[in-house]
Design a protein around this nucleic acid. Structure first.
Lengths: 194, 194
DNA sequence: GACGTTAATGACACCGAGTGCCAGGGGCAA
DNA sequence: TTGCCCCTGGCACTCGGTGTCATTAACGTC
């Protein structure tokens, strides 16, 4: 039936697309795995060979994303202030081509508004936090388990998430700008506050 | 069979205790609802009348906790800096009596280390963030959906969570002190950072 | 061309969380 | 006693997720 051998990765990409479209169309909870599998032309069992959980179909290759953030952090200028280096890495790792933006919006819209996906996000962010805390630990000489590295990791990630939320609701301001704005507030100690 | 009529709330408290103990002893995933129900002397169906999900049995009356944080924030001195008022409210809402500390430790240990509970926590924190963002919005005149209120809510909550994590691993430093330390770093714009 | 090997797939049965529905029973007021 | 209400348990069902096994197609070797 099938024309020829399918290129590896094709199936995974097709399932991911089918899942994303269905979730966006009907809502994450309303879609069951059989729907996604049918739309992608595979069986329910095969779906779980490509994605460990239903939520995983929404996140692309997030492990690579986190690893790239780590690489970018390691390559930052040691003279640069630490917070600035974290900001720069966040901006660069989220510097998507214009053609990718609609897909990113779809993904983030789901992740930030669907309760089940929002909950799942916490597990993914743990990897991000670990990478950032290790960078801060290197720069400061502290342990990655100490207050400052963990706090910087947690708060910068909170800033990045907030920037993403604002970017979703505001079509006009680019993501990089939203990230810079949020990091600026954090770095300056919230100067606008009474 | 049962002696007399049971005081209302008794059952819920008993189930909560049974769940907490079993989860701590065997791990959250290893315990199934039937185990908890049996230990509490109720049926599986009744468990789900007291708690909407398995994770909910670990959180006490968290809605009341969030509401109390809101009350404390509303009662803060308008002359006080905004970040200081948020810190003070966080410290006060988490000012437990010494007798309650072991239970709090058990709860937080589970929430912060069990992946399923960590994920679930994100849903609970949304309520906290909303309350804090509204307080900041009141104080600054901004919309609760604007950058600064959301950012303050997200970062202070990140700071509080980090303080809890450190408190769990360090038996000696009291929780209020950990919270103050974390908030100080945040308020001063991380002075220790190069 | 026949053969054994390997990876991908699908079918099936199973577990556990969570839900809807209904029946039984005890407390309580009239 | 009667009727009402609330709490409870039992049952069947949906759905996410997993272990197991048989099938099939691709590939290299003889």
């Amino acid at each position: 039936m099938s024309p020829v051998t399918e290129a590896p990765g094709d199936v995974r990409a097709r399932v991911e697309k089918a899942a994303l479209d269905l979730f966006t169309l009907k809502g994450f909870e309303q879609v069951i795995i059989d729907d996604v599998a049918a739309a992608a032309g595979i069986s329910r069992r095969t779906f779980f060979r490509y994605f460990a959980t239903k939520a995983d179909a929404v996140w692309g290759d997030f492990a690579a994303h986190a690893a790239r953030l780590g690489t970018l952090l390691a390559a930052t200028d040691p003279q640069q202030p630490v917070l600035a280096s974290v900001c720069a890495a966040y901006v660069e790792v989220n510097d998507y081509a214009a053609a990718e933006l609609p897909l990113l919006r779809e993904r983030m819209q789901l992740i930030l508004t669907e309760p089940a996906l929002l909950a799942h996000s916490q597990l993914r962010y743990a990897e991000i936090d670990r990478v950032v805390a290790e960078h801060v630990a290197r720069r400061t000489g502290a342990s990655a388990a100490a207050l400052v590295p963990r706090l910087v990791a947690a708060t910068t990630r909170a800033a990045a998430t907030t920037a993403f939320e604002l970017w979703l609701t505001d079509e006009r301001t680019p993501l990089g700008r939203q990230l810079h704005d949020a990091f600026d507030q954090l770095t300056e100690g919230f100067p606008a506050l009474p």
